[in-house]
Amino acid sequence: MADHTAERAVERVITLMRENLDEQLTVDDMARTAMFSKFHFSRMFQRVTGVSPGRFLSALRLEQAKRLLISTSYNVSDISLRVGYTSVGTFSSRFTRSVGLSPTTYRRQRGVTAEIRTGTPGYATGAPPATVSGIIRHAKPSPRRRLIFAGLFRDRLPEGRPVACAVLREPGPFLIEQVPAGMWYLLMHSVPKGAETARNDDLTEVATCGPIAVRPGAAVEGCDALLQPARHLDPPVLLALLDVRTAALEVALEQV
């Protein structure tokens, strides 16, 4: 199957998802829209986007919930229904786990958080940490000063706690320290300083590298990445990155 044909089919499904976030879409519904069998559709979607159809849909729902919390006066229960959750408790727990703030805190703080927590619950401690390094470049020069967040995650979807991360003031060499052993994806997200968290527009750039195999105490080099405008096919960035990166940068500058 040609990549172009697969991407067009996946784009049709993502459009279906975005237009029906409050509906209980099934894989059968998505496969019919893609015009492939359910088996071939699921494999194709995973190959094109890096995540399963179900996880992509869940991410879109939480992304929309973030927008509604900031831009409307709907209560949390109403928002949970508008993005397809029948239980406000389930919605709140998933939002908190993925974004890093509860829905009410996210709204009260307008998406601002003072810190970002890293961690790898369930992984053995005591092994010497590793480092991951490379070079980050922009596909197109930007006239606006950008902050760049680089984090290591368990899979292709940037949500929850990164296992380790770094904040850059500009493109170029980077070094992420205190990296635990494991198989990680390096996910990067860049927006102009002071801009609101957005996606799929001229302000947002993303990049992915991986999976990266990290051994205890290793210095993993050559993890280069090219930041490009977010595409329709890119999974949403759920972690509240923008304000976290701004705060982290200000702390770093104070220590210089």
Rank of each mutant, 00 (worst) to 15 (best):
M1H: 11
T5F: 04
E7F: 13
E11V: 04
E11T: 08
E19T: 15
L21P: 02
E23K: 12
Q24P: 06
T33I: 10
R43A: 12
A59M: 01
R61D: 03
R61N: 08
E63V: 01
N75H: 15
Y85L: 09
S87K: 09
V88F: 04
T90I: 09
F91C: 11
S92L: 06
R94E: 13
R94C: 05
T96R: 10
S98Y: 05
G100R: 02
L101S: 07
T105Y: 01
Q109C: 06
Q109P: 00
G119N: 01
G122F: 13
G122K: 11
T125W: 06
H138V: 01
H138I: 00
F149S: 06
A150F: 10
F153I: 12
F153S: 01
E159F: 14
G160N: 03
G160F: 01
R161D: 14
C165Y: 15
L168T: 07
L168K: 09
P173K: 07
P173E: 10
L186Q: 05
E196A: 02
T208L: 05
A219T: 05
V220P: 00
A225C: 02
L227D: 00
Q228F: 04
H232A: 10
H232P: 03
L233K: 02
P236N: 12
V244R: 12
V251W: 14
V251Y: 14
A252E: 06
